[in-house]
């Protein structure tokens, strides 16, 4: 697949951020910081790398994208709606009774490959998919997005060992490395550094990328696909709350939604950014 127009995709990133904030504002709760930080990671994947067809969400030979950090689902819901997996109007029902857009993703909604929310389980599921694909000789890739705080979970490292043991080069983990978790800075809550070396020690090929630079991410996805005999992790350096000045890098914005005035202020900022593109 050829690379998409970067300027168009940058504009879309701003629209997606506006959608995320609107969803969260209407819901009255949800996770702002970690949703805003993964927008480019998702767009570079869905508009460039991921072999998928929104009209055939059950297509057997599609690549799989698993959102292991389920709390960031507003970003995924918005991108899936942009891609046409379901009508955009559904976004405004997020977290409400009767909506398919659960507070944390539920398997069954078109484009949602796994239920998640309890952290640390996605990479193991990705490995299972990859092993099954290998048995069936299906040429698919499995992407799994995790948070940096999420990798406090021991299961992530169990899965890291499984993927390298079975040489799952069809698995690509992506870390939203925004350096913040609920209780504060990751390095203060539970030291994670040196981060890339941890993965390398577990037998992975590690690539560091600018998680808000679409070209950098596309390069990383391309490079990951070329690695054979071992799984690859893309450590995407991001800013939690990216795009909104008063949310960026603020730990208290992990698990809250913008109120009406905050929402309006954020949209104003994003509209101004759009004009400057």
């Amino acid at each position: 697949m050829g690379r998409p127009d970067i300027l168009e995709l940058k504009k879309r990133a701003i629209e997606v951020r506006k959608d995320i904030l609107k969803m969260l504002n209407l819901a009255g709760s949800g996770h702002s910081g970690g949703s805003l930080s993964i927008v480019e990671i998702l767009l570079a994947l869905y508009y460039y790398k991921l072999k998928a067809d929104p009209k055939r969400p059950g297509w057997k030979e599609r690549d799989r994208f698993l959102l292991s950090k389920g709390h960031a689902c507003p970003a995924l819901y918005a991108v899936l709606a942009h891609k046409g997996y379901f009508p955009k109007e559904e976004l405004w029902g997020l977290r409400k009774l009767g909506s398919r857009l659960q507070g944390h993703p539920q398997f069954g909604l078109p484009g949602i490959e796994i239920s998640s929310g309890s952290l640390g389980q996605g990479l193991s599921i990705a490995n299972g998919i990859a092993l099954a694909a290998r048995l069936d000789k299906l040429p698919i890739r499995v992407y799994c997005l995790m948070g940096d705080g999420e990798t406090n979970e021991g299961q992530v490292w169990e899965a890291a060992m499984t993927a390298s043991h079975y040489k799952l080069d069809n698995v690509c983990a992506i870390i939203d490395f925004n350096k913040l978790q609920i209780d504060g800075f990751c390095c203060e809550v539970k030291g994670v550094m040196p981060y890339a070396d941890k993965w390398r020690d577990f037998g992975w090929h590690a690539i560091e990328a600018d998680g808000h630079d679409l070209a950098s991410l596309m390069d990383a996805y391309d490079a990951a696909e070329k690695v054979k005999g071992k799984p690859t992790v893309i450590i995407a350096h991001t800013i939690k709350g990216k795009g909104v000045s008063f949310i960026e890098n603020r730990v208290e914005w992990h698990g809250i939604a913008p109120k009406k005035d905050e929402y309006e202020k954020a949209v104003k900022e994003l509209d101004e950014a759009l004009k400057k593109l």
């Binding site: 490959e113 796994i114 640390g120 389980q121 996605g122 193991s124 599921i125 990705a126 490995n127 299972g128 998919i129 990859a130 092993l131 099954a132 694909a133 069936d136 021991g154 299961q155 169990e158 899965a159 060992m161 499984t162 043991h165």
Partner: peptide, 18 residues
């Protein structure tokens, strides 16, 4: 799967998805 029950059951889920 080695001594890793949590990993094993989630991996099994991946197999079932396929």
């Amino acid at each position: 799967m080695g001594v890793a029950e949590q990993d094993m059951f989630s991996t099994a889920a991946g197999f079932a998805l396929m």
